[in-house]
């Protein structure tokens, strides 16, 4: 049950108060003071890193005529900036493309990674150790290395400008997600499938009916990671898609300019805000899944 191990999951550890090691004759006051300093530093850091969000919000609501004025707050908040930002680029089309592509990718990656992870966790075959080493290696290979050669190859076969590359990438799974599944499935007791084998169930049925339902918490993590990866990706859609079917990431970063090519900062800020809000909401609601996704990236020495 490694993934639910209290010690490895920071979410759960913080909720369950650990009995703090209390030295005899402890200088409690000094420790409390130190915690107060820690608290002050953390508040300062939190303010510092969230300030850009506040500034983005303010810029997003600043009237065009007041951009560049030497003041911290505009004379009024112009909410119409948001609808202007939506109208200035084909916002809804771009959003639909992003949601479609991210969902497609998320569903494919989630299931394909689960299948491969299951294979690595519960089956034997010659070369398994070597192939798992290859998997770990590919986990470290940044996608940008293969992206341009893949683009050149795909353009030869007329696959550029379509969503097919995402279908292929999704169907291949993500090394990191496969790794998470492999760890998850490895931690389950052997009896789980032995009983089913005696009942005469095949490998696929065991996977679909027993293991896949058990991995539900990981399914969410895998989907959120994959969805975010596509939603946040700029380079691949910029290379592989064209203006008629590209994603919001590309639209927002290149759409808000005037005739001379200079950015319209208030609309750019509005657009960036609209683009970020779904990601932030997803994070706040699925925080546990995020944490699980990151915290298990190669833990324990």
């Amino acid at each position: 049950m490694a993934l639910h191990d209290v010690r490895t999951d920071p979410e759960t550890t913080t909720r369950t108060p650990r009995p703090a090691p209390r030295p005899p004759a402890a200088p409690i006051r000094r420790r409390r003071e130190r915690n107060r300093i820690a608290f002050a530093i953390l508040v300062l850091v939190a303010l510092l890193v969230t300030a850009p969000f506040v500034e983005l919000l303010i810029s997003a609501l600043t009237p065009g005529s007041e951009i560049g004025a030497d003041r911290w707050l505009p004379s009024m908040f112009r909410w119409a900036n948001i609808s202007d930002a939506i109208d200035y680029i084909p916002y809804w089309d771009l959003t639909r493309n992003s949601v479609f592509l991210a969902t497609l990718s998320g569903v494919l990656t989630t299931f394909s990674s689960a299948i491969t992870g299951y294979g690595f966790a519960r089956m034997r075959g010659p070369g398994k150790k070597f192939l798992f080493g290859v998997l770990i290696m590919t986990m470290m290979v940044p996608p940008i290395v293969t992206l341009i050669p893949t683009y050149l190859l795909f353009s030869r076969y007329g696959l550029v400008g379509t969503y097919l590359p995402w279908v292929f990438w999704g169907a291949a799974g993500t090394p990191y997600t496969i790794f998470l599944y492999r760890q998850f499935f490895s931690s389950m007791p052997k009896e789980l499938e032995e009983a089913a084998i005696i009942d005469g169930a095949g490998r696929i049925r065991i996977f679909v009916q027993i293991f896949l339902p058990l991995s539900r918490p990981l399914l969410v993590t895998a989907f959120v990671l994959a969805f975010n990866a596509v939603w946040g990706d700029f380079v691949a859609p910029d290379l592989f898609l064209n203006s008629s079917n590209t994603t919001l990431a590309v639209g927002v970063s290149s759409g808000y300019t005037n005739q001379a090519g200079y950015p319209l900062y208030n609309l750019l800020a509005s657009g960036a805000m609209l683009y970020v809000i779904p990601v932030v909401l997803l994070f706040l609601f699925a925080q546990r899944s995020y944490v699980r996704g990151f915290a298990n990236s190669g833990l324990k020495g």
């Binding site: 890193v49 969230t50 850009p52 969000f53 500034e55 983005l56 810029s59 975010n228 939603w231 946040g232 990706d233 700029f234 990431a249 927002v252 970063s253 950015p263 900062y265 750019l268 800020a269 960036a272 683009y275 970020v276 990601v279 932030v280 994070f283 995020y290």
Partner: peptide
């Protein structure tokens, strides 16, 4: 929170700033 912001958006946010 900033760690979940996609690189595109963080570049744009800091560009505004």
């Amino acid at each position: 929170l900033p760690a979940v912001v996609p690189p595109v958006a963080s570049a744009l946010i800091w560009k505004v700033i």
